[in-house]
Design a binder for these strands. Structure first.
Length: 593
DNA sequence: ATAGGGTTAG
């Protein structure tokens, strides 16, 4: 079947060379596939063969015998005369809104091929289909049509174009169209902001959001949802709080979207109690609100509470879905609750009939591996019904690092690099396994491999928000204006830490240096710079919240415990994986992560 | 036209 399709789509690339006969046999073969029929139709028209009576009769027959063609399409196609534009538009819209994005785009093409001229509505219906299908090439083409037909001056059309590019990850193109608009509505801003957020450009999202305020534009609930997402992702609690205040003072109704965004923002910014308070006070809760708070508890290492909430949710008659289980399982994984994890994995498949995805397998492998059950983790991978991806194997590789298993690591990394050779993380992880074992040849081998394959790693950073401004630190960063002061403070602090019993864990310096040089390197780790800057820039006793893009290393974890005690501060660190709450010399993760 | 929840790795 796949082979037949492939063969025909290949022949379709050269429609002008096709004989009538070929088109006819294609029509016979593919009378049951509506999408294919629509495309074939477009090809016939574009090849200037639509005047051919025999071919058209065949096409009509194919359409009529095609049961899987949607009823609206059949009505449209059975229209005696040229269908009115309104009918084209409605049919394109109906498909776009019911998940049949490709059909929607296909209908648009047939419409053009039949000589109909689209209007502004046509574009506002077909562009979201391109956006949802992430069909950037179609979207680009249709954008050009909109320009050519003179509809880009329409706010709705231009906004749909901005949104389409944003959803397809083409934020630069989106911004270009956005900047070219002569007038913009709130939705235009919302589309642009959410485009930034979905591409991970959260600073840009916030900056446009701020610009709206400067221009005196009103926010609506949609704007707020995106702003909250951006704040959550950046860990910008002060910004998130400000957005929350605006929501409250503008008497905006807290609908399920806003509620979930708020719950998520507070949780991801380290305020799990606040998150819970919002959740409790929400007027309406649905699956997504529940999932948000459950994931929040999981991230904070509160798996027992997550489980409690899971059961409450079920009691309320809300059915968990695949993502709810990702949250629950990852929560158990953070606490090493292997038996619970197994129990819920079983529950998911046997009670809820949810097919485990690669994400669930990743959680399970990670959980088993971190609990030291490497053989079990490997055996678990063998039981998978789908082929494991690099992420699943990655959990095992990480376990090899924690437990210093070089041989298994070598076997696993080979598997991983076959699947995902472009990702620097794996090379670094394997190189770390070698380094921890003192096998510097292995380290060199991985470095060389990276060089040969031209993969480069991206740097670790930590950030902290002070007076509404986000300060980002890289490793050994000296670019901050207060750099001198920060390093001096860290040196002083180290003395006091040593006096309190701190011993540098030089194992996590992964280059071959003498011990003293290694200790110096540890002080330059980005989270230390952020924490030091935080202590210097805030009032005595204030809580510090640090965001990190990678996982904390063991030495920084130990150091932060000492720092929290010495300076009498609660330090909350969100790393790539979870939250660590440091207080009075102990961490909420119980040193398991 | 625009909006909510997720795993793994450096």
């Amino acid at each position: 079947m796949g082979r037949v399709d492939h063969h025909h789509s290949k022949t379709l690339l050269k429609p002008f060379n096709q004989t009538l006969q070929t088109l006819l046999s294609l029509l016979n073969l593919h009378s049951s596939s509506p999408r294919y029929l629509l495309h074939l139709h477009a090809v016939i028209v574009k090849s200037h063969l639509s005047h051919h009576p025999f071919l058209l009769t065949r096409l009509a027959h194919a359409y009529l015998s095609s049961n899987s063609l949607s009823p609206p399409t059949r009505i449209l196609l059975s229209f005696p005369k040229r269908p009115p534009l309104f009918l084209w538009n409605e049919t394109i819209k109906a498909h776009a809104r019911n998940g049949r994005f490709r059909d929607s785009i296909g209908l648009y093409d047939v419409m053009l091929a039949r000589g109909a001229t689209p209007n502004e509505f046509t574009f506002t219906f077909v562009l979201p289909a391109c956006a949802a299908a992430r069909a950037v090439l179609d979207g680009r083409r249709i954008h050009e049509h909109a320009v050519r037909f003179g509809f880009l001056s329409n706010v709705f059309v231009a906004t749909a174009v901005v949104d389409m590019y944003g959803k397809c990850g083409e934020v630069r193109l989106a911004r270009k169209v956005f900047d070219g608009m002569s007038q913009r509505g709130i939705a235009s801003y919302n589309a642009m902001i959410s485009g930034y957020v979905s591409s991970g450009k959260c600073e840009e999202a916030i900056s446009l959001f701020d610009q709206m305020q400067k221009l005196g534009l009103q926010y609506d609930a949609t704007t707020m949802v995106s702003a909250l997402q951006a704040s959550a992702s950046l860990g910008a609690l002060q910004k998130g709080r400000w957005v929350h205040e605006q929501v409250m003072s503008s008497q905006m109704e807290i609908n399920v979207h806003l509620g979930a965004a708020l719950v998520n923002m507070y949780a991801r910014c380290g305020c799990i109690e606040e998150s819970r308070r919002i959740f409790n006070e929400m007027p309406r809760r649905d699956l997504i609100s529940w999932t948000a708070i459950i994931c929040g508890y999981g991230m904070h290492g509160l798996a027992e509470d997550a489980e409690l909430l899971f059961n409450q949710m079920v009691q309320c008659g809300v059915m968990p879905d695949s993502i709810t289980f990702v949250g629950v399982l990852s929560g158990f994984s953070h606490k090493g609750m292997v038996n619970k994890g197994r129990e819920y994995f079983k529950k998911m498949t046997e009670e809820y009939y949810i097919k485990p995805t690669l994400e669930h397998y990743s959680c399970m492998v990670d959980m088993l591996g971190r609990a030291g059950r490497l053989e079990e983790a490997e055996a678990f991978i063998r039981t998978m019904l789908v082929d494991p991806d690099a992420g699943v194997w990655g959990g095992l590789l990480n376990a090899c690092k924690i437990y210093g298993n070089v041989e298994l690591g070598e076997r696993v990394v080979e598997e991983i690099l076959r699947l995902d050779p472009r990702n620097a993380g794996w090379y670094v992880l394997m190189s770390n396994i070698y380094a921890t074992a003192g096998l510097w040849n292995g380290v060199a081998k991985m470095r060389l491999l990276m060089k040969e394959r031209k993969v480069s790693k991206y740097p670790g950073w930590s950030s902290i928000e002070i007076d509404g401004h986000r300060h980002v630190f890289l490793v050994f960063d000296r670019s901050h204006p207060k750099s001198e002061e920060i390093y001096r403070f860290l040196k002083d602090l180290e003395e006091r830490m040593r006096a309190a019993g701190y011993v540098a864990e030089t194992k996590c310096v992964l280059v071959n240096l003498d011990e003293e040089a290694k200790e110096d390197m540890l002080c330059g780790h980005s989270e230390r710079l952020a924490i030091a800057f935080g202590i210097l820039s805030t009032k005595e006793g204030e809580v510090l919240r640090v965001i990190k893009n990678l996982r904390v290393c063991i030495d920084c974890h130990t150091a932060t415990k000492f720092i929290s005690k010495i300076v009498g501060r609660e330090i909350i660190v969100r790393d790539a994986n979870r939250f660590h709450h440091f207080r009075d010399g102990v961490c909420s993760c119980g040193d398991f992560w």
